[in-house]
Write a protein that binds this DNA or RNA. Structure first.
Lengths: 156, 156
DNA sequence: CGGGGATTGTTTACCTAGTAAACGGACTGC
DNA sequence: GCAGTCCGTTTACTAGGTAAACAATCCCCG
């Protein structure tokens, strides 16, 4: 390898736009910031945050899931989940219940209030995303999710 | 609108997979976390962070850019940029230079060392991204960037 | 001129989201 | 019965970012 082809000479006439703009990571981050801001607007000042929203979604989907299992699903540490579950419990959206055969674990169960709150939050987020991405076709949005899931295939 | 079609009944036989998995925001975040971790691995323990990398890229692309203008390009506040520029200056990758007609501003110029460091960082990041996304075709990666840029069209 | 208002970089205080390490209590296998 | 492991939790720490205030400077306009 020569000094010449080490840096971009092999990429041909791709001089337009910076390298930065061609990186997946950079574009992902910028897009993420926009969608996340939209999410927060959808759920309001002191509505659920993204983390609590995801956590509650999993608890509804997998009743009696344990905190460790939930942390694994969310891709975060057990220690980080504590505050999230505290918050959801304080709001009355779920309860830590005893597990018959294991006094270490807490089985998380969503309350009716929590289930209703989740449904309404889901509606709000879906509506906001639809409005935010109204300049994209349905095929484009589907393709985007498909491609993002391809990256997610690299998850732990 | 009845209680029945308010929540998902109109979405038809889409019962497979949770609502969460159908949201752009959630998939974006999970994908971003993976790519960002890969980025950090590419640039090593105390190499450039994502923020410094992006900042240095813009400084090389737009020599003598002002800190305020750079903050706008990065989509962050001026106050947050100070520490980033401090870091890049401490590493000897750029200098704050005087602007002839305005004693408030600092024109940022990358040093030769900074330009070389950026090129080598770019190479490392590109190689890592290529390896991370080797399970996707070139068309898929291009399509992904195109779609992410469609979201970024919503940027301030 | 001469201000009043805007802009620049900076500091300070704060917030969110996450990790890492240590811990007591509880469980399991041998 | 006991060594090792697992669960939830606390604490300390990091990264990345905002918001408000500030002095210095600049610009416009009357």
């Amino acid at each position: 390898m020569t000094a010449d082809d080490r840096h971009g000479a092999e990429t041909g006439p791709e001089s337009a736009g910076s390298v930065l703009e061609t990186l997946i990571g950079y574009n992902l981050k910028r897009a993420y910031v926009i969608v996340q801001a939209d999410f927060r607007e959808a759920l309001g000042q002191d509505g659920l945050g993204p983390r609590a929203f995801s956590a509650l979604s999993f608890v509804v989907q997998f009743p009696e899931i344990t905190q460790s299992a939930l942390a694994r699903k969310l891709g975060i540490e057990r220690s980080g989940l504590v505050a999230i579950v505290d918050d959801l419990e304080r709001r009355g959206f779920l309860r830590r219940t005893a597990v018959p055969g294991d006094r270490r674990s807490h089985a998380l169960v969503a309350t009716h209030v929590g289930q209703a709150a989740l449904r309404s939050a889901q509606d709000a987020v879906r509506a906001h995303e639809a409005a935010l991405l109204a300049h994209m076709t349905e095929q484009e949005r589907e393709m985007l999710i498909t491609l993002l899931r391809k990256i997610r295939a690299r998850e732990g």
